[in-house]
């Protein structure tokens, strides 16, 4: 399987107290566990991203507990108030144990 690369859109710099919109997207099939393999008739085992969490300098910002009803290539958008310069860390955890991580720095303008 090709390496899954998450994509996030974070402003490079912000003012103190500014509210910014963060957009994230990760390529993941989000196999629901409800589908059958057409050739063999076997159920395809569930493999979804079950948790998505975001921290800023170690403080939690946003977290989502995800169910199979979220579409393939899950997209999340949320708001955040920037208190200081720092690092925004994103983490996706999948059913198969894979963990995808990416981090972005926000500077103070």
């Amino acid at each position: 399987m090709a390496k899954i690369k998450p994509r996030v859109k974070v402003p490079k710099s912000a003012e103190v107290g500014e509210v910014v919109t963060i957009k994230t997207l990760i390529s993941h099939p989000m196999e629901s566990g409800q589908r059958k393999d057409k050739k063999t008739g076997e159920m395809i085992p569930r493999n979804i991203v079950n948790t998505f969490s975001v921290t800023f300098n170690g403080e939690p910002v946003f977290e989502a507990a995800v169910e199979p009803a979220v579409s393939a290539n899950p997209y999340f958008e949320f708001q955040m108030r920037v208190p200081e310069a720092g690092e925004l860390a994103f983490k996706w955890v999948a059913d198969d144990g894979e963990v995808y991580e990416i981090s972005k720095t926000i500077k103070i303008a």
């Binding site: 403080e59 507990a65 579409s71």
Partner: peptide, 29 residues
Amino acid sequence: ADGNPNPGVATFKFSPLSAEATASTRVRL
């Protein structure tokens, strides 16, 4: 979502750093 095989879609947790309690995603129906 009440018409899916399982009703759960997602649970969003917010924090003091979330300026507004808004979140967007894409779902299967």
